[in-house]
Design a protein around this nucleic acid. Structure first.
Lengths: 197, 197
DNA sequence: TCTCCATCGGAACGAAACGTTTCGTTATAT
DNA sequence: ATATAACGAAACGTTTCGTTCCGATGGAGA
């Protein structure tokens, strides 16, 4: 969000105020947490950040772009465990994701992002790109297991990641983040072992 | 939406115009299909239905309520196949669901409903109830297979349904309804057979 | 038949948020 | 020192919201 801007710069003048953009991102998060997706307006964010609306519109072309930045800002610590056991890896991944969504504003923010993507094509594209990257990274868990000979050759790692992420996303969207560890483990076990007798 | 209204009625006067409410529901569906969730406004519906806004607000307290009515009006029975083979049953179920979403307005309407549920608690509750019912019905496919001894005793039928539905929902939400049959079959196969070597 | 009165479509309202423009100020590279 | 860029603040016109009037319509009770 700033690299290409800085590269295209060819003249003098004041630089972008990091103080201001930080305040805007913090205000956006606070508004989202306190008032929910319904009360999330650019005006409200500007008021709270003591910033001008043009400043927000200059750097974030749409509400979706701001939402995406807010989400990725606090998404530093996601576990991509490597225990040498694919079932354990996937379980820990899903478990930490659920915990993260429950204990931070991330869950609510991501819900808003998904909702926004149903109305705004720009948001949909941003979400699709993010989801594809996520599938690739989560798929590496499976690729490692495949290299160990733990997973069948015919399996598509990204499709496994897709299945696991879908399970988590729908639980988030339908307000079912309170599943216990045993349930999560059975879900992962279903994918790893199948359901056959 | 009309039973208690009719019961509370204690005086004379014109009755509710079925013609008008039908036109409103049809117009709402048309607007949703043509302009998407973003362009779905009460004003647009009223214009299209040649109805007054107060008439809409009188009978549908919120946009979510109108969406719910439109959705329930659209929804028809999905087939719950019974081929005697759980993999084939699940594949046909998912396949017909994708086709239904692609070829009718149901997919778009359901996307709007999911988006609305992230902002409106009433819509969220309605969605949760619908999803629970869906899991129970789809779970019967698995229960039948379990009775045939095709599926392990330890498997929770509703959780299998949950996994399959999650895969489908996320594909709908992220605009990936164009997966080919081979991909869908591999996804189902993943759940049935697992991914182990 | 005549009289209510609930409901209808239509027009207009204030409130809120939208996205944009303008203004004066502040900060920075040349 | 000067030119330039980003800033906060305010105002703009537009859109949609949900509500409130109004006259017309038509079915139930006297």
């Amino acid at each position: 969000m700033n690299a290409e801007t800085e590269a295209a710069r060819r003249s003098v003048g004041a630089r972008r105020s990091l103080e201001s953009s930080e305040a805007i991102l913090e205000a956006a998060e606070a508004v989202l947490v306190e008032n929910g997706h319904a009360g999330f307006s650019i005006e409200a964010v500007a008021r709270r950040a003591r910033a001008g609306k043009p400043t927000i519109y200059r750097w974030w072309p749409s509400k979706a772009a701001l939402l995406l930045d807010v989400y990725q800002r606090q998404k530093r610590d996601v576990d991509y465990p490597d225990t040498g056991n694919i079932e354990e890896d996937l379980f820990r991944f899903v478990q930490s994701l659920f915990v993260h969504w429950r204990q931070t504003p991330s869950g609510g923010i991501f819900r808003s992002l998904l909702a926004e993507a149903q109305a705004d094509p720009a948001a949909a594209e941003a979400l699709a790109g993010y989801a594809a990257g996520r599938r690739a990274r989560t798929g590496k868990l499976v690729e490692r297991a495949k290299a160990r000979g733990e997973v069948a050759d015919s399996v598509d790692p990204e499709q496994v990641a897709d299945m696991v992420a879908s399970y988590a996303w729908v639980h988030l969207l339908t307000g079912r983040l309170d599943e216990d560890d045993a349930t999560l483990r059975r879900a992962v076990c279903m994918i790893v072992d199948g359901i056959k007798a």
